[in-house]
Design a protein around this nucleic acid. Structure first.
Length: 538
RNA sequence: GGCGGCGUAGCUCAGUUGGUAAGAGCGCACGACUCAUAAUCGUGAGGUCGGCAGUUCAAGUCUGCCCGCCGCUACCA
């Protein structure tokens, strides 16, 4: 009865550091979703990796006087450090530099070629005759033919925001070298989106549960009529084209191969785990589901182009859902930074507990529209919601129990207030589970915290610190019930805050081991000191 | 220009297919409690749902126009 769930997460571009917005936009929601599904017994395969190719990386390498691989290695290592510190639970986090990835890309390329979905077309391309290289549109500069703005780029003019073709520019020069640019004919492979796109609309029509901003975008993109799109470039840094009729100065363009990473990372995972065909359970099994966690800037590739590639290849599952997030806008970041540009993710990771950072980001996930987050708000949530509401609740109950250990050994029967609290926990597991499955994570977290508050209410109503003085059996039952509820809270919060939740849950002796339901607490066991779960910021 | 999104209490946001007197958290005011990292709990004030005009028995929720912010327009991925 357990399902196979592929959790595919955007491939971070290894050309620069990530920031909080990236984490909240893709990696954190993916991890919350994956952890939940594992906990309820589904087979999760969560994959991603560092995107190693593309022009920004080579440009950066040139600027720093190093090789592209040095840039990639630097940021890949940095990313691995983030994942470790943030408890992002990959099944496989790899890169696009592996032989495996190259092989898979080649297999897809050749199959699409064979199926007639890739062909060759000639185009005119800006060229630097001094450096002997072709220039991407955005690295050509010149005077805008429409507004005469002097520094218009080949793809658009920043002066009048017109969309341009580079050959329209007057006096075009290379932005990289300053040399005058020429235009030369070059031949490239194109993905025949004009053919593949036709099957996409009926498929998109079935996606009634996608987020409005995602499905609207995808449909209008297809409706406008998809154009064939070049999938090779005149580059040195990238994956070779598996056929040699264009010469070896061309490479597969990054956007085409990076999305294939989801598949190649799955295949690599299978190999590493000793069952080469295991990946098929997620990609060929019709009952498997796939969720692509990305930022809104990636919607075209995941809602249209990647499905088109998959459809052209045949027999591979198309995305079940693409729960793309909008942006988290971190305000006040600049003001709080001591060294110029603003706080880096590394700064936050060194100042914040991982779970607290996960919590504050999860509480503002931009699932519908951009959301604003200030550092004051982050601190407020940490201090009031984590320290005061949840952390304090745990401390409250643990201390009560440790000071009244004999009482909890002989609890009296359940009363209706106790039963009500436990019933509410059962409801919470159902409701919150449903929300996470629908990728309504922000709302799921809010509801989890609402249950935490109910436990505080329960304590205020039952006042065990008073009751214990007169009726230790009744007091014992209240504490026992509160402890059971706290264990439920820890389970509910586990997908969001795995480290602290495990700490709480692990400190409670139990007769059952439910990870997404209420547990029976072992009667007569002693609680160990757990310490403060969260640190308060001054 | 075209396409799309957004504009709901001071702040951050929810508001299913239009239907009981518009919601949450924070902040604010007042109160209860004292087991707990002075933490917890309760009550209350506060909104003509960007503007105007329509459709309808009924609109935050549909239509048109307008204002403001943002994104995309395909060699940024």
């Amino acid at each position: 009865m357990s399902k196979n769930i592929l959790v595919a997460v955007a491939w971070p571009y290894a050309s620069g550091s990530r920031h909080l917005g990236h984490i909240g936009g893709a990696y954190l929601p993916a991890d919350i979703f994956a952890r939940y599904h594992r906990v309820i017994g589904n087979n999760v395969l969560m994959v991603s990796g560092s995107d190693a190719h593309g022009t920004p990386i080579t440009v950066r390498a040139d600027e720093e006087g190093v090789e592209p691989i040095d840039i990639v290695n630097k940021y890949h290592a940095e990313f691995l450090d983030y994942w470790e510190k943030l408890s992002i639970s990959w099944d496989n986090y790899t890169t696009t530099m592996t032989d495996n990835h190259k092989d898979v890309v080649h297999r897809i390329f050749l199959k699409l070629l064979e199926n007639g979905y890739i062909d060759k077309q000639k185009t005119l391309q800006a060229y630097d005759p001094v450096d002997n290289k072709f220039l991407p549109d955005r690295y050509v500069e010149g005077t805008c033919p429409k507004c005469e703005y002097k520094e218009a780029r080949g793809d658009q003019c920043d002066g009048c925001s017109a969309t341009l073709d580079p050959e329209e520019l007057l006096n075009p020069v290379s932005k990289l070298s300053g040399n005058p640019a020429e235009f030369k004919e070059t031949e490239h492979f194109f993905l025949k989106l004009s053919l593949l796109g036709k099957e996409l609309m009926p498929w998109l029509e079935t996606k009634t549960d996608w987020r409005p901003h995602v499905i609207n975008w995808a449909k209008s993109f297809v409706k406008e009529g998809l154009k064939d799109r070049a999938i090779t470039r005149d580059l040195e840094w990238g994956i070779d084209i598996p056929v040699d009729d264009l010469g070896d100065e061309k490479k597969i363009y990054v956007w085409f191969e990076a999305v294939i990473g989801y598949l190649s990372a799955s295949i690599e995972w299978a190999k590493n785990n000793g069952n080469e065909d295991a990946w098929k359970d997620w990609w060929e099994n019709e009952d498997a589901q796939s969720f692509y966690f990305i930022g809104k800037d990636n919607v075209p590739f995941h809602s249209v182009i990647w499905p088109a590639i998959l459809a052209g290849y045949e027999n591979l599952n198309l995305p079940t859902n693409v729960p793309a997030n909008q942006y988290i806008l971190i305000k006040g970041e600049k003001a709080s930074a001591s060294r110029g540009v603003g706080k880096s993710l590394s700064d936050y990771l060194s100042e914040w507990q991982p779970d607290a950072l996960r919590y504050t980001l999860a509480s503002v996930l931009p699932e519908q529209s951009d959301s604003e987050l200030t550092e004051d708000e982050m601190i407020r949530r940490n201090n009031e919601e984590l320290v005061a509401t949840w952390g304090n609740l745990v401390q409250r109950v643990f201390t009560l129990i440790r000071n009244n250990n004999e009482a909890i050994n002989t609890p009296s029967a359940l009363e209706s207030v106790d039963q009500k609290l436990l019933d509410q926990a059962s409801e919470a597991f159902n409701d919150i589970g449903r929300k996470i499955e629908a990728v309504e994570l922000k709302s799921a977290l809010q509801e989890s915290m609402r249950y935490v508050s109910k436990v505080n209410v329960y304590l205020n109503e039952t006042e065990p610190w008073k009751v214990l003085k007169e009726d230790s059996n009744r007091g014992g039952r209240i504490l026992y019930t509160a402890l059971q509820a706290i264990d439920a809270c820890a389970n509910l919060l586990y997908p969001f805050m795995p480290t602290t939740s495990k700490k709480v849950s692990g400190a409670i002796p139990k007769d059952t081991e439910n990870s997404w339901n209420l547990n029976e607490i072992k009667i007569g066991a002693e609680l160990t000191e757990i310490g403060h779960l969260f640190k308060k910021f001054d």
